[in-house]
């Protein structure tokens, strides 16, 4: 199973990979995670790779190798679409964060991302921020995304729930469990 998590530096994608790593551990899989630190984190485009299965070698997913792309931002989903397998799926947070070239008018934010991606692969656009706010805290957006992924890939919900419990601070547990469930239910 190859999961590519993409987003914008500062969106909390690292907790998502931590939960998925914990899930892999609970499910008894071999697992590798790969993340980017340093300069790339400062509002730049960020990618986290999560791979698990019987035996995992490369910590990095290759172009055309991802079973799912979990995108925290629309343009990032668009950017990394070549990493998806032909049979792959995408869960996309329906949110736009303008990169600096767009802010200063040197580039245009593409307005056809939704149609373009939906025309090629199986996609689910969710408003993760809204779901997270309803669950009690916008910061639980990343766990909403995990919930949606759990449904989309048919993962064991109870195990994922346990993975969340073991990955978040106890005082945020209730909010995150609700975020997981609401994210799960957001996928029809």
């Amino acid at each position: 199973m190859n999961i590519l998590i993409v987003g914008v530096g500062g969106q909390g994608t690292l907790l998502t990979s931590k939960v998925l790593g914990k899930y892999a551990e609970l499910a008894g899989f071999d697992c590798k995670l790969s993340e980017v630190h340093g300069m790339a984190q400062r509002g730049g485009s960020v990618v986290t790779h999560v791979r698990f299965g019987k035996k995992v070698y490369s910590p990095i997913i290759w172009e055309g190798g991802a079973d799912i792309i979990l995108a925290f931002e629309k343009l990032e989903a668009f950017r990394y679409q070549n990493y998806l397998k032909e049979s792959g799926v995408m869960v996309i947070n329906d949110m736009e964060i303008y990169p600096m070239p767009v802010i200063i008018g040197a580039a245009v934010y593409p307005d056809t991302i939704k149609d373009s991606l939906s025309g090629k692969v199986k996609t689910a656009f969710i408003n993760a921020a809204e779901i997270a706010i309803k669950a009690g805290n916008i910061k639980a957006l990343n766990i909403v995304m995990v919930g949606a992924l759990t449904k989309m890939l048919g993962f064991d919900f109870d195990k994922m729930s346990q993975a969340v419990t073991e990955s978040v601070p106890p005082k945020f547990l209730d909010v995150n469990q609700k975020a997981l469930l609401d994210g799960y239910n957001s996928i029809g």
Binding site: R42, G44, S45, E63, L75, F78, N82, P99, V102, P110
Partner: peptide, 16 residues
């Protein structure tokens, strides 16, 4: 051949 990427506006790191 590796699957080629699409043209998308770049998102360079920036000052917060």
């Amino acid at each position: 051949k590796a699957v080629k990427g699409v043209d998308a506006p770049v998102r360079p790191p920036i000052m917060c």
